[in-house]
């Protein structure tokens, strides 16, 4: 008996830290499978479309009775509705989720949380907002600041120095003025307007592999280190550099471009496929990615700079903020 008691004490001391686990086995509280969203698909317009669907369902539930309280972007918000037009005057602040059938106009320096217009949306200079959603065209003045995202079905024009939050998407043309900063941008195409020339030449190390000016390559081009492609080259396949990559002006690459480090793309370069860069990326003036039929993407793992007149048919994604060169 004494021996047993010694052994029991030993077993009890041993088992003490295992008790929570034992309880979890006996009465499971966290035993469900990880939630894999079976319906998940990659969609640049996800924020906009899911919000439209949510607002539609709220409007159906409330039969248009305004205002009402509902959950929006993880927060309980008051929805306010106007039949046609909402105007937030200069310097005014709105705390509701604004809904309009035709138009929403924000005066200079207005501040708003969320707004949805079934028609157009016009923002003056220095407007601050959390999310903006519209079914028609959207125009942002200078130095506007978006906290989360904007989505439109029509063209979006963004004024100088604005910040577009984590996502700016449109089914049509997205025009970025100089100095605009963004996380992700989708447009057909995304176009940069005026600004200074990118100017700076890309740097590669002395042992970089080099493709001479005007060269023509029929297959894929893979470099184990830095790669410098000269001006006016024609590459029929894809390009991959394990180091830094410089593509000379006027070159055309039919396939994809992958850079494991920084990449500099010269002026008037055409890329038929995707541009995927794990480091800093600078796109020179007049660069064109994808086309109206084949929508492609630009991915940048660090800082992205877009020169003048860049046209990207598809998605531009940066991990930190990207910017159109001021």
């Amino acid at each position: 008996m004494l021996l047993l008691s010694v052994v029991v004490v030993f077993a009890a001391v041993f088992a003490l830290p295992l008790l929570p686990g034992f309880l979890e086995i006996v009465r499971p509280r966290d035993c469900k499978a990880l939630n894999v969203d079976q319906g998940y698909v990659r969609d640049p317009h996800f924020f906009g479309e899911s919000s439209r669907a949510k607002i539609r369902s709220y409007l159906q539930e409330t039969h248009g009775q305004m205002p009402f309280l509902a959950r929006f972007l993880s927060r309980r918000s008051e929805f306010a509705f106007a039949d046609a037009r909402i105007e937030i005057k200069d310097g005014q602040t709105a705390r509701n989720v604004l809904l309009a059938e035709e138009c929403i106009v924000f005066g200079d320096g207005a501040r708003v949380l969320d707004a949805y217009s079934a028609g157009t949306m016009l923002l003056g200079n220095g407007v601050a907002a959390r999310t903006l959603l519209c079914d028609g065209p959207m125009s942002l003045g200078e130095d506007c600041r978006i906290d989360r995202w904007i989505d439109a079905r029509g063209d979006i024009t963004v004024g100088h120095g604005s910040v577009l939050g984590s996502s700016a998407t449109t089914a049509q043309r997205l025009e970025l003025s100089a100095g605009v900063r963004f996380g992700r941008a989708f447009g057909l195409p995304v176009v940069t307007l005026s600004g200074a020339s990118t100017g700076l030449p890309g740097q590669t190390r002395a042992n970089a592999e080099v493709v001479a000016d005007g060269a023509q390559v029929d297959g894929d081009l893979i470099a184990r280190r830095d790669l410098r492609i000269g001006d006016g080259c024609r590459i029929r396949g894809s390009v991959k550099a394990h180091g830094a990559l410089v593509i000379g002006s006027g070159s055309a690459i039919a396939g994809n471009v992958i850079a494991r480090a920084d990449a500099w793309v010269g002026d008037s370069v055409t890329v038929g496929g995707h541009l995927f860069c794990e480091g800093d990326l600078r796109l020179g003036d007049g660069t064109r990615i994808g086309n109206a039929v084949r929508h492609k993407s630009v991915y940048c793992g660090k800082h992205l700079e877009l020169g003048n007149g860049v046209r990207i048919f598809g998605w531009v994604v940066t991990e930190p903020l990207g910017r159109a060169i001021a």
């Binding site: 306010a80 909402i86 105007e87 937030i88 005057k89 602040t93 705390r95 949380l113």
Partner: peptide, 8 residues
């Protein structure tokens, strides 16, 4: 319509 004033 115009929106209500937001609290700080």
């Amino acid at each position: 319509m115009t929106a209500a004033q937001a609290p700080a």
